[in-house]
Design a protein around this nucleic acid. Structure first.
Lengths: 132, 132
DNA sequence: CAATTGATGTAATAACATTACATTTGTTAT
DNA sequence: ATAACAAATGTAATGTTATTACATCAATTG
């Protein structure tokens, strides 16, 4: 159920993100793809839009940047909220899932009759290497 | 321990945010304050920076916008993570705190020896009124 | 093969945020 | 009071992120 068939631009953008060891902004991706014919931001944003839809890429709201999903083969990605620990120093991102957190937030929104569509959880700080 | 003494610009920005029934972008705030002599974005950003520091205002990362703290008199604001339920339709924001969620995220980052500095939790969706 | 749909290319512009530098105001020490 | 310092402000320019508008191209289908 994985291995989405990607178009040329989607494939290029996904490759760049997969190889990166840090989140990348749309414009950084654009620069990396100039050699492959990319000329305008929209080419990147359109590919990202689809990749986000496919669950292959995540957007980090606190960074205005994007990362390839760390668990692309894990269905969990699609059934729970994704949370991120983001190092402010080296940019390393740890992606995780916690159903207890999900349940707790769920309980809250249900109590408010709020209909959740998308949840963002991002922890900014220092990774073990950088904090040492 | 509340009632921070604000400067003129800080006070103006805080007033605008307090009266608003929705999050506001820095540029929207700027427009509201033209009559009071505001001319440049930096005047707003500088005031916001201090207000964020004082815990009187929150930044919504998924919206690039700002809201006055809903619980200014509650010390809880300063000792736990603030979470938001944001209506995509009417813009209403529900601010809440949940120590169980905090503890759970804490446990995760501790297990990774990650040193958390700031945590963002934002639930986008539809409020009870708009979902009906 | 016409019609539709999805993807792409390109330019322009909008929206959000920061850097740099000059000036003013407020506070503290003497 | 005033010198010295720190904090806040004013202004312009620029940098960064994201979208709108419009034209073209490619794949699919009736």
């Amino acid at each position: 159920m994985n291995a989405q068939q990607l178009t040329k631009n989607q494939g290029l953008v996904f490759d760049v993100l997969s190889r990166a060891d840090q989140p990348m902004s749309a414009y950084t991706i654009l620069d990396k793809l100039r050699d492959h014919g990319f000329r305008a931001p929209l080419q990147v944003y359109r590919a990202l839009e689809k990749l986000l839809e496919f669950g292959m890429v995540h957007r980090l709201e606190s960074l205005n940047a994007f990362v390839a999903c760390a668990h692309p083969n894990d269905n969990c990605c699609r059934h729970g909220t994704v949370a991120f620990a983001i190092c402010n120093s080296c940019g390393h991102v740890e992606e995780f899932h916690d159903h207890a957190v999900d349940d707790r937030l769920d309980a809250f929104v249900k109590s408010k009759r709020f209909k959740a569509e998308k949840t963002t959880i991002e922890i900014r700080g220092l990774c073990s290497a950088c904090a040492a």
